[in-house]
């Protein structure tokens, strides 16, 4: 068996008095969709933030592709997030001033891709996520489902190796939620990207290959005895 893409072990993290993670662990292989389940306040979002190199754990080890994220400098982690990771959040992630097309092109532009090329690739992803019609609109002018598909396009546009999705359907109705999940997982499988999917909804988690439960900051990795 090949080395896992992303491994986290023994993660501890507290915010002031609040203990968010206690000896949490997780591994993700390439192309795998892993659901992280837990009630609100269980620490699942913190786990995602740690895995993505947004939050540095107090203790523990996170290895992505042979590099330890915990000891990595902030600049290196930023670069990693730009180049190797993609993100989809529940809401508030699109820059309200930019058009949808520009929003999707943003990660490429941050990675110094020229504007024209970046917007061309962004356009292809909008098409792929069936939201071509909103390219010139601002996020405030599109529906929640469209906005979320734009966000997925943005997460995928850099062809990341891991996509971190934090309650990506949290603000959507079931039909739109299902559509976003279908497009997200299909696109991830096609590009070979792994997906870390934080959710509290079983129907969303059902799009995963495997789930990890977080309770009170601890992970329970239940391999189903099939």
């Amino acid at each position: 068996m090949s080395a896992p893409l992303l491994v986290a072990e023994g993660l501890y993290r507290r915010f002031g008095e609040t203990v968010a993670l206690v000896d949490a662990a997780l591994r993700i292989d390439e192309g795998e969709v892993v659901a992280v389940l837990g009630s609100s306040g269980s620490g699942k979002s913190t786990l995602l933030h740690c895995l993505a190199g947004i939050v540095r754990p107090d203790r523990g080890r996170i290895v992505f592709d042979g590099q330890d994220l915990v000891t990595m400098s902030d600049a290196r982690r930023s670069a990693l997030r730009r180049d190797a990771f993609g993100f989809v959040f529940q809401f508030g992630q699109l820059v309200p001033e930019l058009t949808c097309l520009e929003n999707v092109a943003l990660p490429l532009r941050l990675a110094r891709v020229p504007r024209r090329a970046a917007e061309q690739r962004a356009g292809q992803w909008l098409e792929r996520l069936e939201v071509t019609e909103v390219a010139g609109k601002r996020p405030g002018e599109v529906s929640g489902g469209q906005g979320q598909r734009v966000a997925v396009a943005r997460a995928l546009v850099t062809r990341p190796r891991v996509i971190f999705a934090d309650e990506p359907t949290g603000a959507l109705d079931s039909l739109n939620g299902e559509r976003v999940m279908r497009l997200l997982t299909e696109a991830a499988r096609d590009t070979g990207a792994a997906v870390v999917l934080v959710t509290h909804e079983a129907r969303v988690a059902a799009y995963s290959d495997r789930e990890v439960v977080v309770r009170d900051g601890r992970t329970r990795n239940l391999e189903v005895a099939a």
């Binding site: 129907r203 799009y207 789930e211």
Partner: peptide, 16 residues
């Protein structure tokens, strides 16, 4: 409960 949820999810994955 965790065991039961895992079982539920397995079925839900199949259905999905």
């Amino acid at each position: 409960l965790d065991v039961q949820r895992a079982e539920h999810l397995r079925l839900m994955r199949d259905l999905t």
